[in-house]
Amino acid sequence: MAHRTETPVFQVDHVFKRPPSGNRDTYILSDLTFEVREGEIFSILGPSGAGKSALLRLLNGLDEPDRGAILFHGTALGEMDVFELRQTVGMVFQQPVLLPGTVQDNLDYPRRISRRTGTLSLEDRELLQVVGLSPDLLERDSTALSVGQQQRIMIARALLTNPKVLLMDEPTSALDPSATRRILELAGDLRQEYGLTIVFVTHDIPEAEEIADRVLLLVEGRIKIIDSADTFFSGNTSRLARRFLSGELDTSGT
């Protein structure tokens, strides 16, 4: 059902961000301008410390730019109801953090939030199947799950608010290769089956190559390259990216 369109979901316009503490004269994100389009998997690739997470946090209003603007379907994020924004733009973090209790308790959590704007019309058992887990896990104690399973619960929880966009912040970094593979497949499925737009942050080139439609290379808070995955991963561009990610080049060298 899902198809990519040219319609921008996010328009990021000359965005600057200062570090949360320390030297307030520097920027961790400098002059970022790009857009994320409907139905695509947009990968933000970059070495650690490039500002990838800081950028992602701006997209669901967990933080806000010091300068510049971000529009979501044409509306400035600052003018949106922050609860509605966060429920329309779901987020999955590097580390899954489940609440104590059963899987069911964890799936119930988003329903107990007072300012609900959207709810998924799926039974919990079906939802578990969507994220690739057995429905029998519902009554299982959440601490008894593997990290990969926990991460799937986090994804299921994010889906419960019925988001249109899913932000994924290095969701595989705590996982082993087979769990990683299954999360990547799940991200692809969610886009395919549910038409979700996905912004996927990673420092891993093969990961980005596998799932991304378009790639943004972020180095030291600046956009180095932004291109379609096809172009990005062919020839020179990806060699340049590889050198950035290995720390061979820094921004002053280009």
């Binding site: 669901n60 967990l62 609860f83 509605e84 966060r86 429920q87 779901g90 987020m91 973090f93 580390q95 953090v97 609440l99 959590y109 988003p110 939030i113 007072s114 300012r115 609900r116 704007t117 986090m154 929880r157 994010a158 419960l160 608010t161």
Partner: peptide, 16 residues
Amino acid sequence: RLEIESALALGASAGE
């Protein structure tokens, strides 16, 4: 921090 931001990301208020 992670637990709190995970909740905020779901649309929870700071108090929640």
